[in-house]
Design a protein around this nucleic acid. Sequence first.
DNA 1: TTATTTAAATGAACACTGTTAATATTGGTT
DNA 2: AACCAATATTAACAGTGTTCATTTAAATAA
Lengths: 219, 219
Amino acid sequence: MSSADRRQREIEEIKKKIIDAATELFIDEGYAHVSIRKIAQKIEYSPTTIYNYFRDKEAILHHLLKQGYALFLRYLHAAESEAANRGGDIVHQLRAVMRAYTRFGLEHSDYYKLIFIEDLERRQPFEDCESDRRKGFQLLARLVEQAVAERGAHEADPQQISQILWAAIHGITSLLVTFDDFPWADDRERLVDTLIETQIRGVFGSAARTQNDEAEGIR
Amino acid sequence: MSSADRRQREIEEIKKKIIDAATELFIDEGYAHVSIRKIAQKIEYSPTTIYNYFRDKEAILHHLLKQGYALFLRYLHAAESEAANRGGDIVHQLRAVMRAYTRFGLEHSDYYKLIFIEDLERRQPFEDCESDRRKGFQLLARLVEQAVAERGAHEADPQQISQILWAAIHGITSLLVTFDDFPWADDRERLVDTLIETQIRGVFGSAARTQNDEAEGIR
DNA sequence: TTATTTAAATGAACACTGTTAATATTGGTT
DNA sequence: AACCAATATTAACAGTGTTCATTTAAATAA
């Protein structure tokens, strides 16, 4: 059975080669402007060979997007648990997750564009990608629910608050990523921080600032 | 010269016919999936005829986007001047403009998708469309500057505040428009209102609520 | 090792796409 | 009625995603 195993590895290897070539091309020239033939040429295979590994061109994009979403969720989860382990209070965790969201967008702006623009723009988005997106939102929603339960908020409905926070953080990230040459305020990191603080203040009131935050020098 | 005039009208008429057919198709099937031949068939002309009226397929999209931006700016300006004429204070105007932004997005979600997703997604966006977008932002920025001067804000930098408000309002609009079947909180209008109030509170503090607002029943 | 079976890579082809150049057709002016 | 300019159309090119029949390579059996 060893030869079958080896073959399995070979298949994965070729798949990876295709994905890598496609990623580079998609990012450079945009999904629509990349042809199967170009990808094939880049990996030095015949165009039809690709169809032995992926059902069609969309399947390649799908594979690529799934990778992006996995990375995205890893960012959010890492931020949440790290903040929790540090003993930060619930609002602190919320902040950390929001920051992680934009950090992902800025550090992997190509992925962000692909998964939050290219994917959204398609007629029929991939269901499992949609599910990953929902997972990201629910992570945020859980934190908000807990935070509202602990401290109360101006608007009582946690669902509404989650969606507002999501909107704000998605808004700044997508704008920063798509309008790279817009004259953004001095430092982008600071802009994001100010936005997050504005949201926290708007939702929980200024009482939401804790000694914990002060100690870490959060404005 | 009357025949030349008539011809001029005819040209505009055919252009309009092309744009209208293209609009419908682009909205239904997405820019990438619409072919010149399909547009031609819809208006019962030969495919090549279209090239007598538009340089290429992109030029059609361009024309369409310009229309969308014009409508968008009309929404913002109308809201601003209406709020000003009603004697509303500056924060009131700000609210009105933000609401107008989302109202445009919701009432013309197809346009919104085209101009705020399709356009952003292209490699090289049309400059004059970019300029229209900037105009929209600057309208907001002017109001913010004035509001900050009048009342002060938690964060002193008006530029930063403008960008935060822009991000929030763009965020909620694009999410509402792209995730039409997401389980949004009860009433979407109310969600938008709550988001706007959250922003105002976060930026100007709760002192920002005026008797004027109370009188009009704004929460 | 050789013969046979199985799996993978390919070349040719189809129905499309945007776009161009040459041709046919129309309408207005002498 | 004859001409001419403007407009519409047909034919064609290079390129696209994708399929199918065919060839090549690899794995197994004799």
